[in-house]
C-alpha cells in the first residue's frame, strides 16, 4: 500500500442523535463506515467538510479521498447533499450567498479553501457539467471555443487577425478534438455554425461536456448529466464517461443505481441529512454493502 492511500474511520465522538428515517441513530450509521484503500495518488481529499445553507446544516463532516483517473459515483436519496458536495470541489458554492463551507478540500495536495486561491485557475482545472444541458445561445463552435477564447488561449478576433496572431486553425483543431472527445463530432461536423439550442437534449449535454473539455481540465464534475435524457442518449453519455476516465478524474452524481454500478470504479453513498455513510469499490458497495441502510437504499427499500 502506497503512502498516499488513506483510511477512513468512524468518528465515534459524534454528539448528534438525530434519528433517521430508518429509525437508527446517526452514530449507528457512522459506526458502519468502512475503510477504503486505493493505490495511486488522491486527486481530491476532503477532510471534515461541513456546509451550511443559512442555519441548514447540509453536509456533516465529510471525509473522503477521490483517486485520480477514475470514475467516482455519488449516490443517495434526493436532498442528501450530493450536489452540495460536488459544488465544494470547484467552489461553485461560493456563488450561493447563503452557503458557508468549513473544513478542507485538497486538490493534488493543495488546499482550495485557503486565501489567495485563484478561482479561475481552479475552475479551469476542475470542470463541471450540469444536470440540465445549458449550452450558450451561440453557435456550436462558439460554445466550445468560449472558454479558451476567454482565457486568451485562442485569439480569433478582428484585432488578432490584424496583428497576424489569428488562431483560426488551432481553433478548428480544438473544436474537432473536443467534439470527438464528447462523441459528438460525427453528428454535428457539418453544422458547426448552427445555434447550439437547435441540438437535441442529449446532443446538448454532450456539447456541454465538449465545452468543459475545451479548457483542458484535470477533473470533470457531473451532476446527474443523464437525468434529462432517453436511454440511448444516456448510454452514449455513459460510454463517454468511461472513456474520459482514462485521461480525467470524473466525479459523477447519479440517481440511477445501474448507472453507478456500470460506469464507476468507486461509489460514495450519502444518506439523508448530509452524511457520507459508505464509500468503497463499486462492486463491493453494490454486492456486499456494510450497512443495512445502504443495502436498503440500493435495493430500493427506501430513499
Amino acid at each position: 500500500m502506497s503512502d498516499s492511500s488513506t483510511t477512513e474511520t468512524a468518528e465515534d465522538e459524534q454528539p448528534t442523535t438525530t434519528t433517521t428515517t430508518a429509525g437508527e441513530t446517526v452514530e449507528e450509521v457512522q459506526d458502519e463506515w468502512i475503510e477504503y484503500d486505493f493505490d495511486g495518488p488522491a486527486k481530491f481529499s476532503a477532510t471534515d467538510l461541513n456546509v451550511w445553507y443559512g442555519d441548514d446544516h447540509a453536509l456533516h463532516d465529510i471525509t473522503i479521498d477521490i483517486p485520480e483517473n477514475s470514475v467516482t459515483a455519488l449516490i443517495g436519496p434526493s436532498g442528501c447533499g450530493k450536489s452540495t458536495f460536488l459544488r465544494c470541489l470547484n467552489r461553485m458554492n461560493d456563488r450561493i450567498k447563503a452557503a458557508r463551507v468549513e473544513g478542507s478540500v485538497e486538490l493534488d495536495g493543495e488546499e482550495i479553501y485557503q486565501e489567495g486561491v485563484d478561482l479561475v485557475e481552479l475552475r479551469k482545472r476542475v470542470g463541471q457539467v450540469f444536470q440540465s444541458p445549458n449550452p450558450f445561445p451561440k453557435s456550436i463552435r462558439d460554445n466550445i471555443a468560449y472558454g479558451p477564447r476567454k482565457h486568451g488561449d485562442i485569439n480569433t478576433g478582428l484585432l488578432a487577425r490584424l496583428l497576424g496572431g489569428d488562431d483560426r486553425e488551432r481553433e478548428e483543431e480544438l473544436v474537432e478534438r473536443c467534439l470527438r472527445g464528447a462523441a459528438l463530432w460525427e453528428e454535428v461536423s457539418d453544422r458547426l455554425d448552427d445555434n447550439a439550442l437547435g441540438l437535441s437534449g442529449g446532443q446538448q449535454q454532450r456539447l456541454c461536456i465538449a465545452r468543459a473539455l475545451a479548457v483542458d481540465p484535470e477533473v470533470i464534475l457531473m451532476d446527474e448529466p443523464a437525468s434529462a435524457l432517453d436511454p440511448i442518449a444516456t448510454s452514449k453519455i455513459e460510454d463517454l464517461v468511461e472513456d474520459l476516465a482514462e485521461e480525467y478524474t470524473v466525479v459523477i452524481v447519479t440517481h440511477n443505481m445501474q448507472q453507478a454500478a456500470r460506469i464507476s470504479d468507486q461509489t460514495a453513498v450519502f444518506l439523508t441529512g448530509g452524511h457520507l455513510v459508505e464509500y468503497g469499490d463499486t462492486d463491493q458497495i453494490f454486492e456486499n454493502p456494510q450497512s443495512q441502510r445502504v443495502e436498503d437504499y440500493i435495493t430500493g427499500k427506501f430513499g
Binding site: 456563488r95 485557475e121 470542470g127 445549458n134 476567454k150
Partner: peptide
C-alpha cells in the same frame, strides 16, 4: 444556468 456554465469554465 448561463452564468453558472460560464463560471464553471473559469470565466470571470
Amino acid at each position: 444556468a448561463y452564468r453558472d456554465a460560464s463560471a464553471a469554465l473559469g470565466v470571470g
